[in-house]
Simulated scan of single mutants.
Amino acid sequence: MRIRLDLSYDGTDFYGWATQPDLRTVQGSLEDALAMALRVPVRVVCAGRTDTGVHARGQVVHFDVDAEPIARARGHSKQPPLDALVRRLNGILDGDVRVRRAVEAAPGFDARFSAAWRRYAYRIADRPELIDPLTRRHVLAWERRLDVDAMNAGAEHLIGLKDFAAFCKRREGATTIRTLLELEWTRTPGGLVEGRVVADAFCHTMVRSLVGCLVIVGEGRRPAEWAAEMLAGRTRDTSMTVVHPRGLTLEEVGYPDADELGAQAERTRARRTAE
């Protein structure tokens, strides 16, 4: 069976998603909990690897397992087996990561390769009265007032299929070409500056670098066209800030209809191979 899990986590106390020796990571914690619940080793695949300190409200993972461990893990529960598994996992995991649901995946589903897009949000408190100690782990406190209209003007230069090398930390053999579908800034009813960032995929530190560029524009230190200049340069500029991960949350992962999942995965794998 292939099982899909939807989960959320506060990334503050994790060293990112991916398993690392002797470090607490989301993947490591989840795999340990699954191994305890199912009494078999399990390897999970996620839709998007989040960096150290980045949060998720809508992370998606899959894992493959025989039906027998799923049935066995139900124990004496009267719940359906996968509902019982969710309850058991949440009883094992620490409170900063929660499994929201578990379902048998549709044929062809792959949490990573079947994904059509990922949506992140970045939240900033840019006035003293907005800085709330109760949300300090999830909202970036910024000392200077930001002009949302200027940030949106800069963002317009970044939308589309482009090479985001200037906004990515290079990885050997990996492409920096991405399709940025949405990049929009608004003020929430509570006054926070909130960015909505949607792309087919993201390279390492891309979202935080995009935000860092547009924050400089929003402060008025650079014109909106500066974002286009940075993009065209295709190299990281030391004058551009990579903002702190605390304001960043993976909100949602989008997938095509069930009958398109396998085809989407094959298209994505083909692109990755071509890279």
Rank of each mutant, 00 (worst) to 15 (best):
T268F: 08
P223D: 11
A165C: 09
D149Y: 00
A227I: 11
G75L: 07
F164V: 07
D200N: 14
L180A: 04
E219C: 14
R43N: 07
R222F: 01
A155D: 09
F167Y: 15
S8N: 01
H204P: 00
A199V: 07
R170M: 06
P69K: 06
D132K: 09
P107W: 12
L134Y: 11
A73F: 07
D126G: 11
V253M: 01
R118P: 02
P245I: 13
H76V: 14
W185V: 08
R196C: 08
A274K: 12
R87G: 14
R87T: 13
Y122E: 08
R178H: 10
V211I: 15
A141G: 14
A166Q: 06
F167V: 14
R88I: 12
F63P: 10
M206N: 07
D64Y: 07
P128R: 05
I159D: 14
A102P: 05
G16T: 11
G154P: 02
R49S: 06
A165V: 13
E225Q: 08
W117C: 05
C203E: 08
G173N: 09
G108F: 05
R123D: 11
P41M: 10
L82G: 08
A116R: 15
A33F: 12
L34M: 12
S114I: 09
D66N: 04
A153C: 06
I3F: 05
Y122N: 05
R2M: 01
R74E: 01
E182Y: 03
V253E: 09
R246F: 01
A270G: 12
L34V: 09
E260P: 00
R74F: 00
G262W: 04
A228T: 03
D237Y: 08
M151Q: 02
C168G: 11
R221F: 02
A228M: 07
N152K: 06
G108T: 12
A265F: 04
A155L: 01
V243A: 00
L34C: 11
T25F: 07
G212N: 03
R221M: 00
K78C: 09
S8Y: 00
L261Q: 06
P189N: 04
S29T: 15
R196Q: 05
V65N: 11
P21L: 12
W142S: 01
P21R: 15
L38G: 11
S209E: 08
D32E: 15
E143I: 01
Y9S: 12
A111L: 09
F113W: 13
D22Y: 10
D237W: 13
V26E: 10
L183S: 06
P41H: 13
G218R: 00
M151H: 02
T273C: 00
L146F: 11
T176Y: 00
L38P: 12
T25N: 10
A35V: 02
P245V: 13
L248R: 10
L248A: 13
A166K: 03
E68N: 07
M206Y: 03
F164Q: 08
A73L: 09
G160L: 06
R267H: 13
L214M: 06
L30Q: 06
R171W: 04
G191S: 07
G254L: 02
L7Q: 08
A165Y: 02
G58L: 07
D259N: 11
